[in-house]
Write a protein that binds this DNA or RNA. Structure first.
Lengths: 219, 219
DNA sequence: TTTGGTCTTGACCATTTGGTCAGGTGGCCC
DNA sequence: GGGCCACCTGACCAAATGGTCAAGACCAAA
């Protein structure tokens, strides 16, 4: 529970066999689906085993404990999660950079909603597993990028707004479409009538851009 | 022994006694804390019973099933949740009305974070209990208020933006501070050094107002 | 004070579930 | 082909947990 441990394997462990590589991946994929749908406590090893197409004892051959699977799934998506913010470039045009960031985050919500929901669930319940990650690498990254944004503001290239809260706003609005997908679809009137309603995220992008860039007050 | 079932009482049920009134409230309060912290499946009747200061069989005297408690807690907060949007007044000034709505939603995040998290958790997992509510009363309310906003836009009093997605944006950004509280505090560097860091929501309000009303692009 | 229903609980039960184990199967290297 | 070790599983176990029950405590009305 202390070290970074990218996965179950300590630094001195043996290298993985071909079969291990394959089956670990299968398990993690199945576990992502199950954990994101039911949460940690709400998921059972049997569910994961069935989805992975193997017996429960075999699951536990690759991961000693349920928690190890959960942690491995979470850690597997952390890097993906940070990547878009990492790309924010101090030398680029502020408006273009932020627009691009919003677009990348929306793409994540569209392409990896399960991962987003798993992440949300973990934080919602106090981040018992990735708390250290939040206070460490995440905070560092945000601090760095906040400086970039602050630079743009001080150069008069962006309106005055707290950079960290701005990042929160972007996280919140983009992940909303993955995390609250059911509500979004319910309110938009998902799949009524003949027309198979378009992806909610199409309408989302235009609205986010308008509001984030120009606000609601008419010029 | 077919008890009077103090709980699921349809319209024809007996009125509640004084003790029932009191104990149901105690149970619902305790259950809100527990369910919001651990989710439905992650919470146990023993936890709720202990927090409520009574025995587990006594819990089940007031609520026949665990699910009944969960549902009752959820239903108890639904009305509170809709209230702020209900107040959006077509005859008011658009900017003032929306500012007020954002402020009210932030107040909810500040004052009832557990309720917000319970709600978020329910939706995150597909809204198995309140799905009907989302597709019914919630959609109706949003549709009504979207018309109000659309009216303001067509009158040139607001920038062009999809009203429903705008509402999503306000929900997302305001509830973020309750639902993702741990992350917010982690990134802001909660409680470091002597200064007991201020409530994150203070900084949030100013930023939300700036971005929602004026956007990021300098005028 | 009596009386009848309300309220409360210790003890108990059945099921679910995370995890173990002994033993079988099969791939890989010699 | 043979031996070794990784891989796999049916059967099993103990703990946790949702829920029941019978019996006692309490309260309020007459």
């Amino acid at each position: 529970m202390t070290g970074p441990l990218p996965d179950g394997r300590k630094s001195g462990g043996k290298p993985r066999t071909r079969i291990q590589e394959i089956n670990r991946k299968i398990i993690l994929d199945a576990a992502l689906d199950v954990f994101s749908a039911y949460g940690f406590r709400g998921s059972t090893l049997d569910q994961i085993a069935e989805k992975a197409g193997m017996s429960k004892p075999n699951l536990l051959y690759y991961f000693r404990r349920k928690q190890d699977i959960y942690r491995a799934v979470l850690e597997a998506i952390l890097e993906t999660w940070l990547a878009p913010l990492e790309e924010l470039d101090a030398d680029g045009d502020p408006i273009a950079e932020i627009s691009k960031y919003i677009r990348l985050k929306l793409d994540l919500s569209r392409d990896m909603p399960e991962a987003s929901r798993l992440f949300a669930n973990e934080i919602l319940h106090g981040a018992p597993v990735i708390g250290e990650f939040l206070r460490g690498p995440l905070k560092d990254l945000v601090d760095r990028k906040a400086c970039v944004i602050r630079g743009w503001i001080e150069a008069g290239r962006l309106n005055h707004a707290d950079p960290v809260h701005l990042i929160f706003m972007i996280w919140a609005t983009t992940q909303h479409y993955a995390d609250f997908d059911v509500q979004v679809r319910a309110v938009l009137g998902d799949g009524e009538d003949p027309a198979p309603s378009a992806d909610p995220l199409d309408g989302a992008e235009a609205t986010l851009m308008t509001v984030f860039l120009d606000g609601l007050r008419p010029r």
